[in-house]
Nucleic acid binder design. Structure first.
Lengths: 336, 336
DNA sequence: CTGAAAGCGCTTACAG
DNA sequence: CTGAAAGCGCTTACAG
């Protein structure tokens, strides 16, 4: 691995000259510059990043803390990963992956290692230990997700409470008075998975306000039998359900549609179906009205904010940015 | 951010003493050690990784090169990501993500930056430019996948050629003489996606040897209509097809099963269905016989080999390790 | 049992 | 237009 000394020796100049040629921070005689360039190219020289970092230059690496849980859905995760990484790349930043279950220790370790310029947080829970640790670090932290302890970090998220309210308002406007929220795994709600809880609770609250009955059923699984059991329970508790909001995934929703079909219920004539907080259902063969996650939007924004902070353009730690979702109509929600 | 000087000052000792206490590479008086530990804890001190690296210590970071293509399936990717990252974590290594479309320039940059101890390659194509670059680096490179230019790196992969042969051998043994391979997107084959090509070509070759007709149909999409069109074409070209090998994904396979059902064809009585080179179909409601990818096995092995190389335990660059797949019988393949 | 000093590969004031 | 030297935060021979 060629170092700056090797290049200097080969070009017959001092190492500072090599450094200045590489950085372009000083005007250099054409002849010298050419010699240095030739030597650098010949030796395949690139400055050692560690040495630059020691001098206080940015590492051009962002840490991405994304703890893995039992119920972690790899495919949804990947979308966020990629979105963040792609955006970071546009700014010349690489991503260092941290996926410990307990992300907070990890954070301290990486922050003091000096290997990254900032930290991105994924899979944020309502009360996130990492947000508290962030306060003690002298590195900027931007969360995709909105913890309750959000001072000390920057947060970007969809406005899930608004999404929950809008879903029920829309239902109300269309004449629905009995709504079922078919949720995902119970444990995800108990662990405080941010968006699930916010959406559900805001929907329930709005239901109370408007006089819309909102029944919540977490799922025990996504298979046909699980779905049938869930529907049996729900319909026996409230036979008047006319709108089902699925806060789940493609497989589950497919099975819900199948189950309704089997019961002779037409969509949307008899029952309306809406997917909320879901990913990329648009590419599936079976279309459903959707209040989708917008991972690209949130992740892009998170990286943009990180860049603004790193460039010293903002100084409002604790700022929370909530983006609106976009309703995708696909013909499965109708008036009742 | 507290440095070694701060700790030394607070503890009233020299920085070398602090260093030795932290590393444990020298015996230190109990009193001094206690003072240093207390100071370090109080200041939340952790050694700066950049500085250590400059001194030649390992960075404990592995680069993961995983170029993104148009047809990249995020969810499958994620499985490999996670498997590699989890295994690396067991050895105390973090992962630095590189996802440029042209991974080779990226590789040179990272290698000379000194930020990583080694490089892992994902999404390897038949003739992979990155493998050639690897030769010029003085960092170990381990590929998950088996390029044709595999000297200069270490490679780990499933034995897809063997998998292809075994699929046809099994078909032959069960009396099938007309087999359809329903493939994924044509472009994936054209780009030389390693495993797809190896499996298909080995299957075709074995078909020739045994007198089994092997028809290959790439897919134009995974939806119901795409599948029906593909089946129409295939069955008109060879009406005697009795086994369909799907080299695709869950959505596609589901639609193949549906399409067969619609045509009044029973599985496996009339047509057998086998999934090959697929991911985690076991968790889907609809079970299918499968020759699955084993991402955990391959990725674990890749990281293990990387560690062996880093520890100087092996010196056989160019080594290729091919792991056998495991046939998962689930009742959709029968005698004909 | 502990410390002063060299050096890892760079960048950047300070000189000329 | 170019160079000699200090220093980033560590580790480790070299001394005592």
């Amino acid at each position: 691995m060629a170092g700056i000394k090797d290049v200097a020796a080969l070009a017959g100049v001092s190492i500072s000259t090599v450094s200045y040629v590489m950085s372009g921070k000083r005007s250099i005689g054409e002849a010298t510059k050419a010699k240095v360039m030739a030597a650098a190219k010949k030796l395949n020289y690139m400055p050692n990043a560690q040495a630059r970092n020691l001098r206080g230059e940015p590492t051009k690496v962002l840490a991405l803390s994304s703890p893995i849980h039992e119920y972690t859905d790899y495919s949804n995760y990947a979308v966020f990963f990629f979105a963040l990484a792609m955006r970071a790349k546009r700014y010349g930043y690489d991503i260092l992956l941290l996926m410990h279950e307990y992300g907070d220790q990890e954070l301290t370790r990486i922050a003091s290692s000096g290997m990254v310029d900032g930290i991105l947080l994924l899979d944020v829970v309502m009360c996130d230990a990492r947000a508290d640790v962030a306060r003690t670090l002298d590195l900027p932290v931007v969360a995709v997700g909105y913890p309750s302890n959000s001072d000390g970090i920057y947060s970007v998220d969809l406005d899930f409470e608004r999404m929950g309210r809008e879903a029920i308002e829309k239902a109300y406007a269309l004449g629905h008075r009995h709504v079922l929220i078919a949720g995902t795994d119970q444990s995800a709600y108990e662990d405080g998975s941010n968006y699930l809880v916010r959406f559900r609770d805001a929907a329930a609250k709005k239901g109370d306000d408007l006089g819309v009955s909102v029944l919540f059923k977490p799922s025990t699984g996504f298979g046909r039998d699980d779905v049938n059991l869930m529907l049996d329970e729900a319909l026996s508790e409230d036979p008047d359900i006319s709108l089902i909001i699925c806060q789940t995934n493609a497989v589950h929703i497919t099975n819900v549609l199948n189950a309704l079909h089997m019961r002779g219920l037409r969509v949307p004539e008899d029952v309306s179906v809406l997917a909320a907080c879901t990913y990329g259902l648009g590419s599936l063969p079976r279309k459903v009205d959707e209040l989708p996650m917008l991972p690209n939007e949130t992740c892009s924004r998170a990286v943009d904010i990180m860049m603004e902070v790193l460039q010293g353009k903002r100084n409002d730690v604790g700022h929370v940015e909530l983006l609106p979702s976009r309703y995708q109509a696909r013909g499965t929600v109708a008036a009742h």
